[in-house]
Nucleic acid binder design. Structure first.
Lengths: 369, 369
DNA sequence: CTGAAAGCGCTAACAA
DNA sequence: TTGTTAGCGCTTTCAG
């Protein structure tokens, strides 16, 4: 027997790797690699041979090996609050589309508002070595964001509190949206407006909450503290809180909810109590999820463009990944909001119609039955 | 200058890899590897040192390297139809939970019923070298499934047509669910029942369609072909088709929809036409998505447990991954369905109440207003 | 039971 | 421009 110090790792199955392609195309593996990565310096004739071989062999580059050696996984992480809240699937869809178009894979995780799960989300991002993370949640524990930025992972998040230097913030223009909603109700004649917030320990909930308070002040409407209710962004929460609100002696005539799911729960409670919408009670949502339009009556709501949000997040992330710490892009981006008037808002009953004509309604969406 | 044939790859940053851990714990890298992988033969004292070092250094193993050398990515692929149909997020949530609990990451992609996107889904799965794929969609192009099984990727899918030998099929018990729905309506006194199917080129839609037809036959109810409508699983589709149905001279008194989104669209059309539910028209959905309960009135529907589906899929996949072609698990699994009676179904108007007492209603969920 | 060393498939120096 | 080759960080023989 000749020389055979040690049996090399058995490799029976005829490997299908870059070498096979190189052999088939009669070039070196480096050339194959360059061709695949569209390095311009490759001779067109050679490139053609390589592509032909790839085609014939049905070769797919090994992403793991690529990631290992290049240090870039080509995965973008996306952390959301709760995938079962319809707003997030819509966001995810947009995010995926943008990311895939740019050649990235997506790792989606959800926090479910649970600190333990948040930690798990971050851990999974780090383990899989994502190239960047978008944290598009209603709030997250700050230390976790730090963990991410300590790992030097590019970060984008929605208006979380203190601005981390390495991260870009996406600011939703709650102020404007809430203002439009309140204004809309006020113009209709509502003076007794309730607000159903999200959990107030979350910064984004606070933003909406204070936006509401400020609007009321600005308009000069008295605010009954009993009408400032803290919800939890869920259907159940909205329903339960509204049921409680309906027990009050002094009832508001309208309610603005800080997301559509609560608003739908609220509608359920109102209708369940035998009241009519909008005749007895007006309801305004926030998000404009797709199903909002299919409620009965269709939900008037404040649209926050998840397309803008997703596109913004991906764009920022990608530009961070390209810029080798050169031209730092803006470290904040504003996401606009827009009032979509449908049919859950109307003139409060027992109102003398001496108010402004409802000219602003015609501007927005309004379905004719 | 001593010997330096070629500048080795520059490595300024003090690497944080298995070697660092090994050095810190004063063991070999092999021992660190074994410790991490919980190989029982490691000396407990050593293992303890290793874990301590890992802790101190905040070491996270490199998943890519692991995958590269072991050939297992520890990623499970999940292909769904459309992430914006609420049924899928619920499914995804369950799937994720199961998979993560077993130490797998998830790669989610959605087909949007578009052949091009389906192909992209499959390509992405192959590129990322997922260890297994669950195709939980309403139909997919057969060649794509073949592509997956050609790559020897373990596969699970919902009742698609020809049984691929390498794949496991999850069969939803549509027959039973539809039967319960029709039976429920019949017991209430409905004899003119419409059916809103999914796109009939999809096998799963056909299953539900034929189940409906069979039930009607079995019960002995005449079936007006004009009441057999083909929808597309969407809110818009449901609404539009229902609007058309309402133009008919001969109207049914109830409609069974093959998913909840269509049913909600249908409800919208009915209520929009000024009719009442269930007084003028009864509606039954399919899926029991979370929001179904919060419609007004709450939607009577046929529940298909997405928990069972997800759990089944993950379990099958994982067992396939363990069994090195030994004990092949069952190649089919049945997912049960269950009628959930809420408030969109009632006695058709103008019906003489000479029917069976509605004893079956009390068994199921029913909210008291 | 532990350690040394051979690669996994690829990219990126560097040499030609 | 193309080819040669040294690793990326890890698992896994195989020898001790």
């Amino acid at each position: 027997m000749a020389e055979k110090k040690r049996k090399p790792r058995t490799k029976k199955p005829p490997r299908m790797d870059i070498r096979t392609v190189a052999a088939q195309a009669k070039v070196s593996i480096a050339t194959v690699s360059r061709t695949i990565n569209h390095i311009p310096s490759v001779d067109p004739a050679m490139a053609k041979r390589v592509w032909k071989a790839i085609e014939e062999l049905n070769y797919v580059p090994n992403t793991q090996a690529r990631a290992l050696v290049s240090g870039r996984s080509h995965i973008l992480g996306l952390i959301v609050s709760e995938i079962t809240n319809p707003f997030f699937p819509e966001l995810i869809q947009q995010f995926e589309e943008c990311a895939v178009a740019r050649g990235y894979e997506i790792l989606i995780t959800s926090t479910s508002y649970d600190p333990k799960r948040m930690a798990s989300c971050v851990r999974r991002m780090v383990e899989r070595k994502v190239d960047g993370v978008a944290v598009l949640t209603f709030g997250i524990e700050e230390p976790l964001l730090e963990q991410l930025s300590n790992q030097k992972i590019p970060l984008v998040y929605v208006d979380s509190r203190p601005h981390q230097p390495a991260a870009v913030t996406l600011n939703v223009d709650y102020q404007h949206g809430i203002w439009q909603g309140v204004q809309h109700l006020a113009v209709l004649g509502h003076r007794k407006i309730a607000f159903l917030s999200g959990p107030l320990h979350l910064y984004t909930s606070q933003l909406r909450y204070f936006a509401f308070i400020d609007c009321l002040k600005e308009i000069g409407i008295q605010c009954n503290p009993a009408w400032l209710i803290q919800g939890d962004h869920t259907l159940e929460g909205g329903m339960r809180k509204m049921e409680q609100l309906l027990q009050l002696d002094d009832q508001p005539t309208a309610i603005l909810c800080s997301n559509d799911m609560s608003a739908i729960g609220v509608m359920h409670a109102i209708l369940g109590a035998g009241l009519r919408i909008p005749d007895d009670f007006s309801v305004v949502g926030f998000d404009d999820v797709h199903i909002a339009e299919f409620m009965f009556p269709p939900l008037t709501t404040i649209r926050m463009s998840c397309r803008d949000l997703a596109l913004g997040a991906v764009t920022v992330l990608c530009s961070k990944l390209k810029n080798t710490e050169s031209a730092t892009p803006a470290n904040a981006l504003t996401i606009p909001t827009e009032l979509i008037v449908r049919r859950t808002t109307g003139i409060p009953k027992d109102t003398i119609q001496n108010l402004k004509p409802l000219s602003d309604r015609s501007k927005s969406e309004r379905k004719v039955p």
